[in-house]
């Protein structure tokens, strides 16, 4: 059981990272970025080519991927999202879905659609803990997610940028009146979302293989994780991803493999029926 929980946490960690990037962006700019997974995919491809054809070491390749994701995120935010922030939400939804399609098709054209293996970044044997085994990719995912969550907590808690982000998330108008440069905060949050998405992509690629489609199922799970945790809650996104990963493994192992996904989402629905705002989310009130 412990082994299953640990492996479920590892699987859920990737959902948490991507869910975190979705929630951060949504909290600040009010936009659910359906193209977040494709930003991760593009960045992962960049790192793949640097690692394989370019002979570049792992760390610089990862940094280059992160820089790619940040660049794409900033371009998307500044030139397609910010101009329509005052429009109804549906406009932003259509915009990000359009960006998703463009990036997906563009990747197929630029990189080809044949799946390929992504190099393992942690070249050690599987870790044995108390009678069970954690393979290297899953171990790297767990550790990286924990470190990133800690870093984010520190950013929000101890830095001016983090304070500005929190202020903008709570009340954009008030933050503006208090001198916060809201446009800069938008850009910074989207950039941060790009960082998390890129790392999520690089962590899962060694497990799933790399293709223009590989982040699509991860995005679906990340959206589910964000909803479970409460879309307005950063901590909820992390919790939601971990719970989703563990739930999938436990349902498959003890209930049914045939209905593993269906039963898992049935559990999610049950949570939302009893707590519509998610586990850690708060009820939003808007004037009508």
């Amino acid at each position: 059981m412990l082994e299953l929980v640990v492996l479920g946490l590892a699987a859920g960690s990737v959902y948490s990272l991507l869910a975190l990037s979705l929630v951060l962006v949504d909290k600040t700019s009010g936009v659910v970025n359906f193209a977040q997974g494709e930003i991760a995919m593009f960045a992962t491809f960049v790192s793949f080519y640097l690692l394989t054809s370019g002979g570049v070491a792992a760390l610089p390749a990862v940094l280059a991927a992160v820089a790619t994701a940040v660049a794409i995120a900033l371009l998307v935010e500044r030139f397609t999202i910010r101009p329509i922030l005052h429009r109804p939400e549906a406009h932003a939804v259509i915009m990000t879905v359009g960006i998703f399609l463009i990036l997906n098709a563009g990747a197929g054209w630029a990189f080809g659609s044949v799946p390929r293996g992504y190099p393992t970044l942690l070249d050690i044997g599987a870790l044995r803990i108390g009678g069970f085994t954690i393979p290297p990719p899953q171990l790297l995912t767990l550790v990286t997610t924990a470190v990133l969550c800690l870093a984010l907590w520190a950013l929000f808690r101890f830095t001016r940028l983090g304070l500005a982000m929190r202020a903008t998330q709570q009340n954009r108008r008030a933050a503006m009146l208090m001198g916060v440069r809201v446009g800069t905060v938008f850009s910074a949050t989207w950039a941060l979302g790009g960082v998390l998405a890129a790392i999520a992509g690089i962590l899962i690629a060694p497990i799933t293989g790399l293709s223009p489609q590989f982040m699509v199922p991860v995005l679906v799970s990340a959206l589910a994780a964000a909803v479970i945790g409460g879309f307005g809650s950063v901590e909820g996104a992390v919790l939601g991803g971990l719970l989703l990963g563990v739930a999938q493994v436990l349902v498959g192992s003890y209930l049914s493999l045939n209905f593993q996904e269906a039963v898992t989402f049935a559990v999610i629905i049950a949570i939302l029926v009893t707590r519509p705002q998610g586990l850690l989310g708060t009820t939003r009130q808007r004037p009508v």
Partner: peptide, 17 residues
């Protein structure tokens, strides 16, 4: 027998089964 869904990326349950 262990079925999987096309959207799955983790096969812990299937391997265990």
């Amino acid at each position: 027998e262990a079925p999987y869904e096309l959207s799955q990326t983790d096969f812990t349950s299937q391997i265990r089964e």
